[in-house]
């Protein structure tokens, strides 16, 4: 394969179910659908003192979508809406314009760089971020 989209780290993240699951009493929830393929992501958040304290998610989607949701589940708690929207913008720019991966733990998003060459798959990575932003907007 000339561009290994499905490298070991992506497959590992896709299989990781440690952050999966819905929350019983979230501050806000958002579900987004990808009309192209029918994939669906739901993200629940509990927001305390402006920061996400707990995040749960349910994904009916491809490996890229599940891997993206796993990283969100792992790294979004402890951050506020403004900083997470910056991350969402950065991963979008990384895929669409070749920008750098976001800083800190979000450097892990570098794993998705091979997706940049597959425009039809960008939304697979971005769908969980869209759900995250929608949930944060509702919690606001």
């Amino acid at each position: 394969m000339d561009t290994d989209l499905y490298h070991a780290r992506i497959l590992e993240l896709a299989r990781d179910t440690s952050t999966e699951g819905r929350l019983d009493a979230p501050t806000a929830s958002a579900t987004v659908n990808n009309p192209l393929c029918g994939d669906r992501v739901t993200i629940d958040v509990i927001v305390e003192n402006a920061d996400i304290s707990v995040l749960g998610h349910k994904v009916r989607g491809c490996a890229l979508c599940r891997a993206s949701a796993t990283l969100i589940g792992a790294h979004a708690p402890g951050h506020d809406a403004a900083s997470l929207k910056v991350v969402a913008g950065a991963v979008t720019a990384m895929l669409k314009h070749g920008g750098p991966a976001p800083d800190g733990p979000w450097q892990a998003l570098e794993a998705f760089r091979p997706v940049a060459d597959h425009k039809s798959r960008h939304d697979c990575v971005l769908l969980p971020f869209q759900a995250l932003v929608d949930a944060l907007d509702q919690a606001d």
């Binding site: 394969m1 989209l5 499905y6 393929c37 994939d39 989607g61 491809c62 490996a63 890229l64 979508c65 597959h118 798959r121 697979c124």
Partner: peptide, 9 residues
Amino acid sequence: IHPHDVCTI
């Protein structure tokens, strides 16, 4: 395996 993953591979 999701259909889009099959198709991309």
